[in-house]
Design a protein around this nucleic acid. Structure first.
Length: 634
RNA sequence: GCCGAAGUAGCUCAGCUGGUCAGAGCACCUGUCUUGUAAACAGGGGGUCCGGGGUUCGAAUCCCCGCUUCGGCUCCA
């Protein structure tokens, strides 16, 4: 057989040759440093046979930043972890241990629970294994052999993995000076030996359900990470530390934007400065809504249970609703606006000439989220959604969805946000016919394409009432959060008996488009805080300009200047602190502009300091011109 | 909700194995200073050591229960 090298040359190999054989044929040094091979673009273990005629590329320990090379390293590190845990905690059952972004984890079932205090010993043991040396070898066996083997070893999770594995079963054995030590079911690929693992660290301990199902046993998950270079680990830890500084929960306190109280878990208290940001967004929302043909409505906060029975929420969403009794009736705080909007729509006759009706409401919603799911502003129990429901004809759906996407992206681009788009299609328990779903999914795809968006598809992940487009963003630690959503709904209009009179004089059921672009103001502001690390652009900043009079005698002039900058959010700091201290405070508060005002200053010559330290002298007129541009959000 | 961890002044945190352990820095208040681009100086006030039980001569410290928060898991309509 032969393979094709990256330079185009052909290499002649014995039949059934592996990647390692290919590397050896090229040179011993390469074989020594090799960690995995790409055959026709697909990564595979060095020890697995190569397809005849494959184009190959060998990755080595020098590809220290290559994601695939890191995956292999970390996957092997995970196996060393399992070996160490088995040695230190006899009787432990091993489940699964894949590499992930930034590291790896391994799930175990411990005979007696472990705590964080046990982690150091495990980490030390892994480091000892690395120092001692481990060689990874691969073998392929049948599913029956594998099942038998793991059953004999008392590893029920492995048996289950074999049962659901696709294709050939491969095992990896890591052996050291003391003989074969640990064999694990694994697809691979793995390193040839442990030597390239120059940095190893256990980073966390958590519970995790077997196969991600909360009905299953909860296992103990140990997280860790590994690198080809010690310095890479240090850089990683440094990066994590920097990310933590952007955490909106930390900045929210530092910048005096909001706080939480034990008296109302999951519901933020917005401080005056936080509300400045909120109101800027609220103004933006209202202005843009009006410009795009939306009407604004306001609907009740609490409803009789009957409404939720009609909408289906009582069935599907009850455990997340706050309910209470009053005068022998059961009520619930609304977790969504849509049923209320349906009631509003139903009040009065609607003609096809009225459609589309774009009904918006930044309604306050309450959802009884699981205590363990709460997360600062990013997962709350009370929030305001920039909600809207578009009632339209089936023919109008595509244009309406496109309008929503265009609307959303006008906001995201203004803020420089990076959005991940997902399309979720019909689930198993869908309502409605396949024809309806074909049309609905087609309309969403067409709108996505017309907007020029790249998106991933989550097959079967749509709501039972219709497909949806979800818009996600990452927080400072790389966790994803849903910001916006555009959902098609055929069910709610039917459940509420909504109709419009068509041109054919017959009654028709409208299609409903649920749409949130900012999503919840709480979550959006939380994301913005992390995105800007608290240094908001001028048009969003709670305080835009701070004037610092040099001495007490300049305070009056400073206030006059502030008055001339009316229309902007301006403060005068005439406190009894030193000039240096007041400038420092303004910097710590991340205020975009500081104007120092003393003997030398006048309307013709202002000493302007920009956030970060840049200084310049400009006239009031020049400054006002500059601020006007920034205020527009350019 | 589940697994693990944490909760000490407004904020950040120290307080090891129970015995002046109720502290520091910043913030706050008062006074002095009247300031030229990231921290003037001095003094002072402030804590139910998350809450409730328990062990003990004695608990911030040990045990139990609860609440909240953090890291994950599940969930995210």
């Amino acid at each position: 057989m032969n393979v094709v090298l990256p330079d185009g040359n052909t290499l002649e190999l014995a039949d059934g040759a592996s990647g390692l054989d290919a590397a050896l044929a090229i040179g011993p040094k390469l074989a020594e440093q090799a960690v995995l091979i790409k055959a026709n673009g697909e990564t595979q273990d060095l020890r697995a046979p190569l397809p005849d005629g494959a184009k190959i590329e060998i990755l080595t320990t020098r590809n220290t930043a290559d994601p695939d090379a890191l995956y292999v390293l970390r996957h092997s590190a995970a196996h060393l972890l399992a070996e160490a845990v088995r040695r230190l905690h006899p009787g432990v059952k091993v489940a699964i241990g894949p590499p992930i972004d930034d590291g790896f984890y391994y799930d175990f079932e411990f005979p007696t629970p472990i705590t964080e205090g046990d982690l150091q010993a495990i980490e030390d043991e892994v480091k000892r294994e690395i120092a001692e040396g481990r060689t990874f070898s691969r073998e392929e066996i049948t599913a029956d052999e594998a099942r038998e083997r793991f059953r004999a070893e008392g590893e029920p999770y492995k048996v289950e993995l074999v049962d659901t594995a696709q294709g050939a079963i491969s095992l990896y054995t890591q052996s050291g000076a003391n003989g074969a030590d640990f064999t694990d079911l694994c697809r691979g690929p793995h390193l040839q030996n442990a030597a390239p693992i120059k940095a190893f660290k256990i980073t966390g301990l958590a519970g995790a359900y077997w196969r991600g199902d909360s009905a299953n046993t909860q296992l103990t998950r140990i997280y860790g990470t590994a690198f080809y270079k010690e310095a890479d680990l240090a850089a990683y830890l440094e990066r994590m530390e920097e990310s933590r500084k952007r955490d909106h929960r930390r900045l929210g306190v530092q910048l005096d934007l909001f706080h939480f109280s034990e008296l109302s878990p999951g519901s933020p208290f917005w401080h005056p400065k936080g509300m400045k940001i909120w109101n800027v967004l609220e103004d933006l929302r209202r202005r843009e809504n009006l410009a795009r043909g939306y009407v604004e409505v306001r609907t009740p906060q609490i409803y009789d249970k009957e409404l939720w029975v009609t909408s289906g929420h009582w069935d599907k969403y009850r455990e997340h609703m706050f309910t209470f009794e009053s005068e022998e009736r059961t009520f619930s705080l609304k977790p969504m606006n849509c049923p209320g909007h349906c009631v509003l729509y139903a009040n009065g006759a609607v003609s096809y000439r009225d459609l589309p009706i774009r009904m918006s409401e930044a309604g306050v919603l309450h959802r009884d989220e699981l205590a363990g799911a709460l997360h600062g502003l990013l997962r709350v129990r009370m929030f305001s959604q920039d909600d809207a429901h578009i009632f339209c004809t089936p023919e109008q759906v595509e244009d309406e969805v496109l309008g929503c996407l265009d609307f959303g992206y006008s906001i995201y681009e203004k803020l420089g946000l990076e959005i991940k788009v997902e399309l979720s299609t019909r689930p198993e328990n869908k309502l409605g016919t396949d024809e309806e779903w074909d049309a609905a999914e087609g309309a969403l795809k067409a709108a996505l394409d017309r907007q020029g968006l790249t998106y991933s598809v989550n097959e079967g992940d749509g709501a039972f009432y219709g497909p949806k487009i979800d818009l996600h963003m990452l927080d400072s630690l790389g966790r994803g959060w849903q910001i916006g959503t555009v959902q098609l709904d055929f069910q709610l209009p039917q459940r509420f008996g909504l109709t419009y009179q068509g041109a054919d004089n017959a009654e028709h059921t409208p299609v409903m488009v649920h749409r949130a672009l900012i999503g919840s103001f709480e979550r959006f502001i939380g994301i913005l805080i992390e995105h800007f690390a608290g240094a908001f652009p001028f048009w969003l900043a709670p305080v835009q300009v701070r004037i610092v009079p040099v001495a007490e005698v300049h305070a009056a002039a400073a206030h006059e200047l502030a008055a001339k900058l009316g229309g902007y959010r301006v403060e005068v700091d005439d406190s009894a602190e030193t000039l240096g201290k007041r400038i420092r405070n303004a910097e710590l508060e991340k205020i975009p502009f500081v104007i120092v005002y003393g003997e030398k200053e006048s309307d013709d010559a202002l000493a302007v300091r920009e956030r970060g330290g840049g200084q310049s002298t400009k006239s009031l007129a020049e400054l006002q011109g500059e601020l006007a541009v920034l205020a527009a959000g350019a």
